[in-house]
Design a binder for these strands. Structure first.
Lengths: 174, 174
DNA sequence: CCGAGTCGGTTCGGTGAATGAACCGATGCT
DNA sequence: AGCATCGGTTCATTCACCGAACCGACTCGG
């Protein structure tokens, strides 16, 4: 991470985490990756992020081992960005920030709801299934639009594809 | 939040959360508040944060209802900043970021360890006590230095006071 | 073969935020 | 009176973010 981005003498793992995922836009990119976004142009369309910033963040995340950049077709060469195991481990962070925002900023109105795939129980704020009481891993989590979804009426392809319930980490677009 | 700090058309509670606590330094201030730091000068000494930024962040957090600014003595007038209920609700975020950094950046070496006050069980990454299996609230959490503590050999008063095991949210200094 | 379109970027000038040092007012201590 | 402490504000510099333009590799249609 470039000069001025580090938290220097902080003796704490939190500071190290923030150096990687604490920059503007970074956690939104990671969130979209959980929702199944994989391609540069799809991140761009869904996040309204400056292209240069997206390039920089993706590169940082790849270098940090959070995303894996891999070619999914030759001719024309196309790359996709997929969460690594280390990246998937960020899910509790993303989930807890989502829940806090729902509760304290949006008055409890969720834009998306999460269910335990298979058993169908809702996932509570600690990540536990209300039915089987297990901790639900991201790849067992099904995401569907909640009552607060679509308040902004975006119409880009990624937003439309997200209205379809699907499992986390599954590719959103073909 | 001032212009250019918002995430615009993001239909997601995560974006709203990031607008409040996603700025540089903010979560470190919140973390210190959990550890018992309450005074402007103590945040300043422990974080090595520019004074202007600290003032700005504290004001933002107070306006957001995360911190409560209250006078704890007259003559000379002195204020302290204490987490509100809404602020205490940020604990899962702070805890999950701590854990991620320990696991993935510090190779599992924790600077601090958390125990369930009373029953003494260690608190795992989901916030659950290893002994009684309950979700441990911040005010029932005891924090003590871990094996990775003090690698940086800071000597400010706040760092020294933190070496003493204590409960979260309890004032660190008199 | 030519021209337009798509994808995944890079480059560049302008702007706003972070930084660190200096300064300040109210108060207490000696 | 003189100095120190606390909780800030002010200011000039540096840096990161922003949006628009540009670009190279490739494909497709005619």
């Amino acid at each position: 991470m470039a000069l001025g981005k580090d938290y220097g003498q902080q003796d704490c793992a939190l500071a190290r985490t923030l150096e990687l995922v604490g920059e503007r836009w970074t956690l939104l990119i990671v969130r979209d990756a959980f929702y199944g976004v994989r391609r540069y142009s799809d991140f761009l369309a869904h996040l309204d992020i400056p292209r240069a910033v997206l390039s920089s963040r993706l590169q940082t995340l790849v270098e940090a081992g959070v995303l894996d950049k891999r070619r999914y077709q030759e001719s024309p060469p196309r790359e996709e960005y997929v969460l690594t195991e280390r990246g998937v481990d960020l899910w509790p962070i993303v989930r807890s920030m989502l829940r806090w925002g729902e509760k304290h900023v949006q008055n409890g109105v969720a834009c998306r709801i999460f269910r335990h795939h298979g058993c169908g129980g809702t996932v509570d704020s600690t990540g536990i299934c209300a039915v089987c009481a297990a901790v639900v891993a991201p790849d067992e989590t099904e995401v569907a639009p909640g009552p607060g979804a679509n308040l902004l009426r975006r119409e880009d392809a990624v937003t439309l594809a997200m209205r379809r319930p699907h499992r986390l980490l599954e590719p959103l677009l073909p």
